[in-house]
């Protein structure tokens, strides 16, 4: 069972990612979703998902802080974090790297960007 968490305050983006992932044809994927940083933190600690799609602009605590918490405070280094942001600025890329994110996808992304990355992380058997 692969667990993937989608964190975005926009329900349509969550829906889009869920639909893309449902089309990946990977067996045994369980998708969790959260619309804010606090909920995301709770789910991460409870479920320990393999992949987290993490939006930067979140109500409450932002994506960088969530990422920082997972990697540096909780030391959950097995979690693969893909930051999602609308900003294509170098500063945000650097911030994502500093907070410990594994990958960075800028909006708008294509289906192929997402599928390729998920397959890469989950391994060839999926």
């Amino acid at each position: 069972m692969h667990k993937i968490l989608i964190v975005d305050d926009d329900p349509l983006i969550r829906l889009l990612l869920e639909e893309i992932l449902s089309d990946v044809r990977v067996r045994n994927i369980r998708i969790f979703s959260a619309d804010n940083g606090h909920t995301a933190a709770e789910i991460i600690q409870r479920e320990a998902p393999e992949i987290v799609f993490l939006d930067v602009m979140l109500p409450g605590i932002n994506g960088f802080e969530v990422c920082n918490m997972i990697k540096n405070t909780l030391k959950m280094n097995n979690i693969y974090i893909i930051m999602l942001t609308a900003k294509g600025q170098e500063l945000d890329k650097q911030k994502a790297k500093d907070s410990g994110a594994d990958f960075y996808i800028t909006k708008p992304f294509t289906i192929q960007d997402v599928i390729r990355k998920v397959k890469e992380v989950l391994g060839p058997d999926s």
């Binding site: 926009d10 349509l12 983006i13 889009l16 639909e19 893309i20 089309d23 602009m57 609308a86 900003k87 600025q89 800028t106 909006k107 708008p108 992304f109 294509t110 289906i111």
Partner: peptide
């Protein structure tokens, strides 16, 4: 940056869902 964010988010949905529809 706000405008680009606000534009990119719906644009992501539009492009993403269009791709899904196409597929």
């Amino acid at each position: 940056s706000t405008v680009s964010h606000e534009l990119r988010t719906p644009l992501t949905s539009v492009l993403g869902f269009t791709e899904i529809i196409e597929r």
